[in-house]
Amino acid sequence: MGIDAVLEDRPSASQRIREVPSHPDTVPLAIDDLTVAYQSKPVLWDIDLDIPEGKLVGIVGPNGAGKSTLIKACLDLVPKASGRVKVYGKAYSENRSLVGYVPQRESVDWDYPVSALDVVTMGTYGRIGLFNPVRKKHREEAMQALEHVGIGHLAKRQISQLSGGQQQRVFLARALAQDAKLYFMDEPFAAVDAATEQAIVGLLHELKEQGKTVLVVHHDLASVSQYFDWVVLLNMRVVNAGPTEEVFTRENLKATYGGKLALLDEAGQALRDSLR
């Protein structure tokens, strides 16, 4: 039995009667019924999520909860088994210019022979378009973005000669150069120094003030209520989502972190067995 067939057979979830939500252009991100599976391993189940505009959203959950996968599914970087994602009312592929992305820092080889400015200029590539040349204007935009994150003086430095925090800032500057309305950031706070952490927090608030929406995969529970005004508690499914003060509670955290979701685990195992 193929995976799609198995997923079609899911009880209740797809059968439950639900109003088909309409997503006006003002909702930065609307996720309906999203399921993602890597080969036979289910990662995200039945995600329904509407992110309001102008919020700093922390995506929180234990390791393997599918936090990065959620972002990647929104950006069409991993195939969806089911469901759909709308960015400002349209499919992501039609609204790419509104989205900025900060991947995990370890996802690239920092020994690559390019300068900090070169990397940030990549943020303007979406506007430049395929096969068109990079112009002075684009480099200047990239330079502004670098200065914005406080490392303009390192523009010509080769990226391997930057500290971890500086490398993270380069990635943030690249996303700024994308000049988006909705940002996805995959663990920007991972292994950075205190100064960079403060710089990132400052940047997040600036983006919020400009009415932009930022989704941040975050690991440090202690700083969640300080940094984010909206939280998504994730563990393969959305345990809860909403304003931080309402959702970020002891009980909800327990539901997110405590105890494996035995039922889903079992279902996953059955799925794997059926594919053997």
Binding site: D76, S107, Y112, D118, M122
Partner: peptide, 23 residues
């Protein structure tokens, strides 16, 4: 030489290239 920009991005950060919707 004509594809310098594309090859540079491909070799450095394939995922980001994907997110731009480039082939």
């Amino acid at each position: 030489l004509l594809l310098l920009k594309e090859f540079t991005l491909l070799c450095f950060d394939e995922t980001f290239m994907h997110s731009l919707g480039w082939p």
